[in-house]
Amino acid sequence: MNVKIITYSLYLVSGALITLVVGRDLYNNGYLLILDLFKNKDLAITINKFLLTGYYLVNIGYVSLTLIQVGKIDSLASVLEQLAVNTGRIALILSYLHFQNIAFLAILSQRRQKLTQYFN
């Protein structure tokens, strides 16, 4: 079997695994923050589910978009290199998006506090 196909399948599996694990974690822990922001249980559940679906779609789509590797893959070392670099890139992008999200939520909740201060 072609070595590239093995690398591709390992890459897909690792990318999907990272996406699923991180997404579940964010889904479980982000709920309270969203609830704190919107103060409405049904709305928070719905928004959380929407966010999770969009997150899965974007990330698994990105993983399969960046599947193609141009370089030569012929040995165990190159398989490991390609896998590590690609998985690492996905993890770095995910962490950037993740911290961006947290900052966004924090800014929104601060705005909300200010608004409620003004309007009460």
Binding site: L80, A84, V85, R89
Partner: peptide, 16 residues
């Protein structure tokens, strides 16, 4: 979670 992603991502990205 963010910390794990960032540091493991860096570790893997710079492995080559």
């Amino acid at each position: 979670t963010g910390f794990y992603l960032l540091s493991l991502g860096y570790a893997l990205f710079r492995m080559k």
